[in-house]
Computed example of a mutant assay.
Amino acid sequence: MTTTLSVTRIGHACQLIEFGDIRVLTDPWFTQSAFYYPGEPLAATVETLGRIDALVISHEHYDHCDLDALVAGGFDLSTPLIGPGTVADIARTKGFSDIRVVEAWESASVGDLTVTATPGKHGVHEVTFVLQAGGRSVFFGGDSLRVPELDEIPGRFGKFDLTLLPTNGLCIRPLNLAQAVMDAEDAAALTAVLAPTVAVPQHYAFHSGQLGDRIVTRGDRDPRHYADAVARLAPSVNVQIAMPGTRIVVPLDDRS
């Protein structure tokens, strides 16, 4: 019998992915600061997360690597933490004791869960991830740009049940609107390559506050633009826009 697979979006790119009874938390973010606003209510606090079997972090930006909030909330610092070396360096200073460093195409295992880092590109060093357990596969895109190396993923890993991709196309105003995150069209084109059963957009509600939105960042906060683009480019993919706290159970692929 194939393992059940579900995902609950806590907020932003913080997702609770469940492969049967294996519970994986991605890119934790539980607080806000002067120029970092989630833009939506979070579905959980650190204290209410429950047991986490693995913590997967794509890069060290605060809105994806809020380790201070985990520490303050009493998170179990012996939980295996999987991420690139830049994240590992920070995690060691926070007291995490089981750190698994992975760079692109390298893997780490936690019980029956295998986490493989895949390429990414952002304003700092970033990896994306393929997570596999019980015959189910998930691609987690953090907040990477779309890079050509990502098109290699289906040939290496086969079919995906679920993709979690950023869609806001975040641009940095002081850098002449340099794009730092894939936008709806980029994400839809990658979705067409990965061909998952279910696709869930992430990393779109974030904003920089009234001042920051005018002078620091610009982004698309409407995930329906991604859903529309997928309908054009990959019409067989089921896009589900999930409010924080909504648990999506991913069915087995029944597409002909």
Rank of each mutant, 00 (worst) to 15 (best):
Q202I: 15
F129D: 04
A178K: 15
P84A: 10
I153G: 09
V115H: 08
T4D: 15
G83S: 06
F160E: 06
G155I: 05
L164M: 13
L164S: 10
L113P: 08
H61N: 15
V102R: 03
D220Q: 06
F75D: 02
G142M: 04
M182G: 08
A133W: 06
Q15C: 14
P38W: 05
S137D: 01
D27C: 12
G212F: 05
P80R: 06
P196R: 07
D143C: 12
S137L: 11
T114D: 01
T93H: 05
R218L: 07
L164D: 06
I82P: 02
Y36W: 14
L194F: 12
T246D: 14
V138M: 10
Y36L: 13
D27I: 04
F35Y: 12
F139C: 05
A195I: 00
T79Y: 02
T4Y: 01
F160Q: 02
S208R: 11
R218T: 07
P196I: 09
A227M: 00
G73S: 02
V250D: 07
L211Y: 08
A133I: 01
N238C: 13
G83C: 07
R146M: 10
L5A: 07
L162C: 10
V138I: 12
A192E: 11
A229P: 01
G85L: 03
D89Q: 15
T31S: 15
R9H: 02
Y62H: 12
G11M: 01
T45L: 09
T128P: 00
L25K: 00
Q32Y: 06
E103N: 14
V102A: 08
A13V: 01
V110E: 09
V216A: 15
D66M: 03
R136Q: 13
L67H: 06
T114N: 09
L49A: 12
T246S: 12
V102S: 02
V24Y: 04
S97Y: 01
A192P: 10
P196G: 09
L113N: 09
D228C: 01
P84N: 15
G50K: 03
F30W: 02
T45Q: 07
P38H: 11
R221A: 14
T217F: 12
A91C: 09
D222S: 03
T217Y: 11
E106I: 02
A69Q: 05
